[in-house]
Design a protein around this nucleic acid. Structure first.
Lengths: 216, 216
DNA sequence: GTATTGTGTACTGTATACAATATAGATATC
DNA sequence: GATATCTATATTGTATACAGTACACAATAC
């Protein structure tokens, strides 16, 4: 269910392409010529170009000048690098949260955590990942730091791509999702240090072991 | 002196517009209609559009749908937020640097530090800021973390805008520039903690006091 | 059989043309 | 005189057309 905020064709195409990439419909390494996409979406090349270029800024596609754009592939090294940065950024978010901003967001956070668990229960992985993203973004938003928020929102697409590529087994995924609620408890109790340690485990857990076959 | 890596018109326009914004020639809040830019640069609207959209991704211009794009203005809050994130990211870079990667980059770093000081001596503020940026980016690159590097490179444009807006008095600027060499000494001695503390001061020094008159 | 060059095709990069919408100014109304 | 509404214009959003380049395949030379 693609959610198009703007109604310009560029934005619609952008959202749909992003969804197709993150859902794995468009796999890493695949060529995406502008003309065939234009045909597929029933629009001209102009909005396609703008969408592709935006996706390139987010690292989801790679543009080779005067040649095709391709869907980006994530390497193991890149996955580790992103995780490391992510931990650092979200730990900063935790440090920046004060009680009032937390209480303002606690309801939203717990809803995402719950929805995530529920989706896990019925085996709906797509929703699990979506709600997981929303939880972490809401956490970052609670920091109130606009620069931090925009960086994390930008990084989110890559993280989603990573989550899917990681392909964690059910039991592990379920275990790590439970940490959302734990983190909230720690935050409520004001124990930021413990929360940051848990976040570290939450994000960097046996990261490298499951990555692979992105361009199957 | 704009340095155009790619030779496509889009890239050239992008670089030139960026330079004009960072040099203050295009001031915050100014409208930038596509057509007049196209005339000014002697190209069609297409490459102009792509450049503007790219600048928007970097936060240097703000696009209001179906209306003019304007040069973004930095608020005091935003400046603080960016500084906070920047400290965190560059501290992560310092943590990630190992001896081999440092020794590979030490020459480059000291050159930037020296050039920065020299430019300060002859009162060439534009070069000071340029070399300052290069120093910090080289530091981040030494980390070898691709995700971190790309985030910092992306943030760099905003930081440059900020540096100019800050408009630090000569003596203070000169003082803080001296810290580049100090940080390198600490790194060489392996005292990362001290280096990170110094970096914190280096970046967050009386930040809010000088910001203002961006759209003079 | 392999390497090299030539040619055609397909795709991108850019320009131009048209459609749709927002802004500003003028007119009308209270 | 102030406010609201209408109209004209300017500017964006999108489509299309053309030019130039890169890639793939074939033909030739070694």
């Amino acid at each position: 269910m693609p959610k198009c905020i703007q109604n310009s064709l560029s934005d619609q195409v952008y959202t749909m392409l992003k969804d197709q990439i993150l859902s794995g419909q468009l796999k890493g390494g695949m060529k995406i010529p502008e003309e065939s996409l234009a045909e597929q979406f029933g629009v001209s090349r102009t909005p396609i170009r703008e969408a592709i270029r935006r996706l390139a800024e987010y690292g989801l596609v790679t543009i080779k000048p005067r040649s095709h754009a391709t869907v980006s592939v994530i390497t193991e090294q890149e996955a580790n690098d992103i995780a490391r940065v992510r931990v650092t950024l979200e730990q900063l978010a935790i440090d920046s949260i004060d009680e009032t901003s937390y209480s303002r967001n606690v309801k939203e956070l717990s809803r995402y955590a719950a929805d995530c668990q529920y989706a896990m229960g019925i085996g709906d992985r797509a929703t699990v990942f979506e709600q997981d993203s929303l939880f972490h973004l809401a956490l970052v938003r609670s920091s109130g730091n606009s620069a931090l928020i925009s960086i994390c929102e930008r990084l989110d697409a890559k993280i989603q791509q990573l989550r899917i590529a990681q392909n964690l087994p059910e039991d592990e995924l379920s275990y790590y999702l439970g940490q959302h609620a734990q983190m909230m408890t720690l935050l409520k109790n004001g124990d930021k240090e413990a929360c940051k340690r848990l976040l570290y485990e939450h994000i960097t857990h046996d990261l490298t072991s499951h990555v692979g076959s992105l361009d199957a």
